[in-house]
Design a protein around this nucleic acid. Structure first.
Lengths: 210, 210
DNA sequence: TAGATTGTTAATCGATTAACAATC
DNA sequence: TAGATTGTTAATCGATTAACAATC
């Protein structure tokens, strides 16, 4: 059903489709078309149909798409109905914000623990979890088998920690550590959130003096 | 000197080039080549030369590139030497983390104020700034003329607030509010940080059960 | 000079857009 | 049935890669 390989461009558009269909559904809209979606999302109808047809045939000729059905399909495609165990590594400011503000369950994951290397932070409570020392990671992973680690640690420690976590069975990183991890890309998925890079692209596009 | 329009793909690679050259420079490396950079960054030498030649001729035949000179050129190209006034709008958890952790000066900006609509938060101090009520934005903008606003507010308020800020002269948004802003794209630059979308792409790429 | 590596042009590849038969 | 809109094939466009003359 799903095409062999989905291009990065398509993958990046899926969340937008899902978000927008969720809004339509919440607004009570029952039906839509590629033309309508395209107009709203600033894409072409062709592109939307091509994208969706990577995964199956979800529309009906002459009618278009049922909003609820298509949203539900995207939910399954993206894997939002899953509940894969995840951990946060690094309980500094950023780790705390993510623990408190990201609804992991809404994205197909389930937060199972928060770890830090600083014994002063360990023992404190964040989002219902007691921050635990990294020493206990091995035992924890043996029991809970988390698949994803959210890396909220300083750049210097990132590569080493990622290697360690990879050895403990982690196969996905949500990487906030501001550096490019070197991993076995056949086995391990990395999604980078490089805030600095993001702000630099804005800097590039803003007018400059001198 | 700079080509008429730079593609989004090129823009997204510039920060990585800059980061990597900074590392090389910090390590004391004086010279590099497109082949070397390509190997390290996982790109092709051709691509790197094409990308750089959008902006000028920075290399020397037979030699390659001087690390410091090229890093410096990228600094100017991206605009990291600038100091454009920026404000943070929304001083919740996320706004605080950004205020405290992002080195705006390193990215061509200068944090000038933090605003919130909640009078309970106003008056508290974050990263050396006293959080100020949004009521005072108009006066502030008239005096300081910030060009960029970091949007750390809830989705519901984002569009309205963006419109308001646009009217007050803001021409760039670093948007963390998890929705797609509708703006006059000829005048206003938007850089989205959609953490939910980011986590969804990781969800998509992770194995699924059932 | 010989070797190396650039800047740039040409070739290839992949993604986007257009077109249209199928069909609800 | 007529109108609408899909799924899909073909055409176009743009980005990446390869090739090579220029030159340090």
């Amino acid at each position: 059903m799903q095409k062999d390989s989905i291009s990065e461009s398509v993958i990046r558009r899926l969340p937008r489709y899902y978000r927008f269909l969720s809004e339509l559904e919440a607004a009570g809209t029952q039906r839509t078309s590629s033309r309508e979606l395209a107009a709203q999302l600033g894409l072409t109808a062709s592109q939307i149909r091509q994208d969706l047809n990577c995964f199956g045939e979800f529309g009906q000729q002459g009618y278009g798409y049922n909003v609820t059905a298509l949203r539900r399909q995207l939910e399954l495609i993206i894997g939002l109905n899953q509940s894969r165990p995840a951990i946060i590594v690094g309980a500094g400011n950023l780790g705390k914000v993510i623990a408190a503000n990201i609804d992991f369950a809404a994205y197909g994951f389930r937060l199972t623990g928060i770890f830090d290397i600083d014994r002063n932070i360990c023992g404190t409570e964040i989002a219902g979890f007691t921050v635990t020392h990294m020493d206990t990671l091995e035992t924890f992973c043996g029991e809970v088998h988390p698949v994803v680690a959210v890396l909220c640690i300083p750049q210097e420690a990132a590569q080493e920690t990622a290697d360690h976590l990879g050895a403990l069975g982690i196969s996905g990183f949500w990487n906030f550590s501001h550096c490019d991890l070197e991993t076995d890309r056949s086995r391990i998925q990395v999604e980078n959130v490089h805030l600095g890079d993001s702000l630099m692209t804005l800097s590039f596009r803003m007018p400059k003096k001198d």
